[in-house]
């Protein structure tokens, strides 16, 4: 037992758990290759409604009225950034909770929960798998945006953008943990995730600038981490603003990350204990 106990607390071993989870999920993905059809076609189709919409309302993809709220007259680059960041929200909301439900359905959940490792690392591995999927998808969307709609990317904006996305993802992992707990207790978190998806979609500036919303809706929007991430990334990528000028958004993102992760851990552990007491742990 001595050697095993020593191994149990090593940081490297925890990273190995995260990595094994990512590898496992990647192999599942490869077992269903039809996903590549979606990855190849959808990024192109996705743009078309926005192009038509822009032309129908203002006759082009640029608008002075839009510039008053967004700081940029170009609608397509604005919406591409909105879609990419919202993509991380969607995969975080649906991915981990659904993954827990699938583990229960397969009968593997009992084995995950009865292993001696910290379950948080399994969940982080699941969330990271979803983030990697989102990143691949975002890269394709961005590439389409660059080649078809002239979105400009310079080396200098990559690092600050990645930092903001990282901060957004951290907070989303906290929400993922909460939804994983909900999934343990109620056996499916889909409806909660669906509701949250619309809260983010409506009140965060995904498809329209925050300033165009009524005051009450702006207040709700400012409680969501996606709002600050969108404002920061658009400021960096579209308005070429320096990251140092975005300290408020970064600070608020950090606070939200800490709250969401602590709350996520607490809720997951609480729900796990409840289901282990009630005997419903491996129900699905």
């Amino acid at each position: 037992m001595t050697t095993q106990s020593l191994e149990m607390y090593s940081f490297k071993a925890n990273l190995q758990i995260v990595w094994s989870e990512v590898v496992k999920n990647f192999k599942f993905l490869m077992a269903y290759p039809v996903i590549f059809v979606f990855w190849t076609i959808f990024p192109f189709l996705w743009f078309i409604p926005f192009v038509f919409q822009g032309q129908a309302f203002v006759g082009s993809l640029q608008s002075a009225e839009f510039e008053k709220f967004a700081g940029t007259p170009d609608y397509i680059p604005f919406i591409v950034i909105g879609a990419i960041l919202n993509g991380y929200v969607l995969t975080s909301l649906y991915g981990v909770g659904e993954s827990i439900r699938r583990e229960a359905y397969r009968g593997t959940l009992d084995y995950l929960l009865s292993s001696p490792c910290n379950k948080a690392f399994i969940l982080i591995g699941k969330a990271l798998s979803e983030s990697i999927n989102s990143t691949i998808y975002a890269a394709i969307q961005l590439a389409v945006g660059i080649f078809l709609f002239g979105i400009e990317i310079t080396i200098g904006i990559i690092l600050p953008t990645v930092l903001i996305i990282f901060l957004l993802i951290l907070g989303l992992y906290g929400i993922s943990l909460m939804l994983a707990g909900v999934s343990l207790q109620f056996k499916q978190a889909h409806d909660v995730a669906h509701t949250l998806e619309y809260v983010f979609y409506v009140f965060s500036p995904v498809r329209y600038p925050l300033g165009s919303l009524p005051f009450w809706a702006q207040v709700i929007g400012r409680l969501l981490p996606l709002t600050y991430a969108l404002v920061a990334v658009r400021s960096i990528m579209l308005l070429k603003q320096n990251i140092m000028g975005l300290y408020q958004e970064i600070f608020l993102l950090l606070i939200m990350d800490i709250v969401a992760i602590l709350l996520g851990f607490y809720l997951f552990n609480w729900m796990e204990k409840r289901t282990k007491s009630s005997g419903a742990i491996s129900h699905y």
Partner: peptide
């Protein structure tokens, strides 16, 4: 793959 995955949960060296 199954065995490698589950072994990693027991924190065994690779």
């Amino acid at each position: 793959d199954n065995l490698i995955y589950f072994a990693s949960l027991y924190k065994m060296p690779r």
